[in-house]
């Protein structure tokens, strides 16, 4: 039972950390801080995966988000008026609506997670090495089509995104509109 208590504790700890960092994302004025808060939120989620014994996914999440959020930070600095947050500028709108939507979403999701009877917890978790192996078999076996589609999707979106993002040829179009 101690294992379960420890698991519960770490789950809650990292989970609350993730939520807290998630809130920081929208409360800080500095854009780099905002992006890095999101990174730490995602890292805490990765740690939650580790607590839930999904080792591969946890490490993967921690790894992927480092890059993703660093790029995010760069874009924040590029595209915001006040990336250092010195002006303490308010960058939000329709606050009340958003708060309400968030609150309703929270209540609904909480109700769904606590009300139903989820049945007994599974006991036998495959070991980390076995999980990785099983996941590989799953990916390259039954779910291969989905996996390959995902791969193609990401390739397509990479190419498309690059196409959209590169500078258009100058053909008398001014950028001053």
């Amino acid at each position: 039972m101690t294992g379960s208590v420890a698991e519960l504790f770490f789950l809650a700890f990292f989970g609350l950390a993730a939520i807290w960092f998630g809130i920081v994302v929208f409360r800080t004025h500095s854009m780099v801080r905002s992006a890095l808060a999101l990174l730490f939120s995602q890292t805490a989620i990765g740690a939650m995966f580790l607590v839930m014994q999904a080792e591969f996914l946890g490490v993967l999440q921690i790894m992927m988000m480092a890059t993703e959020m660093s790029v995010m930070a760069l874009f924040m600095v590029m595209f915001m008026m006040d990336p250092g947050g010195m002006g303490a500028m308010d960058m939000s709108h329709q606050k009340r609506l958003s708060l309400r939507a968030g609150g309703v979403g929270l209540l609904a999701a909480l109700a769904v997670s606590w009300l139903p009877d989820w049945g007994p917890a599974a006991i036998n978790i495959p070991s980390a090495a076995r999980q990785t192996e099983l996941l590989g078999i799953e990916l390259l076996g039954r779910s291969m089509f989905i996996f390959e589609s995902a791969g193609l999707t990401i390739l397509t979106s990479m190419i498309a995104a690059t196409m959209v993002a590169i500078a258009p040829r100058k053909s008398g179009v001014t950028h001053d509109c």
Partner: peptide, 30 residues
Amino acid sequence: IVELSVALSIGAGLFAVGLYGALSQTNLVM
């Protein structure tokens, strides 16, 4: 299963924060 419910609640919290952010921010990156 308490752990499951706790994990789901954390998911709910993250969802709520994310929803609030997506609706309230004016900047595309945010």
